[in-house]
Amino acid sequence: MSAVDFEILLQQILNGLVLGSVYALVALGYTMVYGVLGLINFAHGEVVMIGALSTLSAARLLQSVLPGLPGPIVLLLSTLAAIPVCMALGYTIERVAYRPLRFAPRLAPLITAIGVSILLQNIAMVVWGRSYHSFPAYVSTEPFQVFGATMTPVQVVIIVVAMAIMAGLMFLVHRTKLGRAMRATAENQSVAGLMGVNINAIISITFVIGSALAAVAGVMVAANYSIAHYYMGFVLGLKAFTAAVLGGIGNLGGAVAGGLLLGLIESLGAGYIGDLTGGFMGSNYQDVFAFFVLIMVLVFRPSGLMGERVAERA
């Protein structure tokens, strides 16, 4: 392997790690809700989108009031403004669209989730318009060199934030009283209720935390690609869902592992699939490659990489 080949490979691995961290950020929110409620929150991607766009609006407002503020501070403050928006949104979604259906047939909340997703997309289209928004580089996107490969400060921030959030959530779920209540709710809602856990409150808190994460994820995605759009949540949600399942849905570590793995698969797949198949398949089969790995993983580990083995009656 020549030096150039090595640089390319290193770059592809870095690309995969950054992309994977983006997926992981979104997947964490997905998996948290799933872990507690056993519900695929299809609207999660839309909350990510709202997070990104409301941060953008807040940042524009902030800069028009205080023009001289440094970029990272603007971003931090406007993210802090967007987080409550998403929290309120998450709370409302759960309260209105999911809670009444907690004892309904399993697919009913899935359909309301799809309905909410369509609603949010179109509301966002009315509020922020149909155009793509350029997301200013509040954190520098100027690259620096790492052993011949390049990275940007935003990418470093993304990886760090993803890891920090994972660690924070793990601490929350496994080491705090609230976390214990969450785990009890996940295990068995009615028994947890009998043990004095306020089920409704716990589920609301889970959604609110998940939505706050979505806001952060949205900002990170928008900053990394310098773009925000009312349609950005759909694809992202889908990828994050895939990542969460790959890692074992409901498992926090699994979401990060699944996200990173998916990112690496996509990146290396797009980079090398053409050479591997002698030019027969190219980067157009990137997703096929990713789904193929997913299916293979699930064939041998039916509940994902780190998922617990579910009892026969899931």
Binding site: I249, Y285, F291
Partner: peptide, 23 residues
């Protein structure tokens, strides 16, 4: 390949299958 899968795991694999065909 999906006989052993259930619920949401099956959902994502079928979703993937649909996308694979389209791709």
């Amino acid at each position: 390949p999906t006989l052993k899968l259930r619920g949401d795991y099956l959902a994502i694999v079928t979703l993937g299958f649909g996308e694979i065909i389209r791709i």
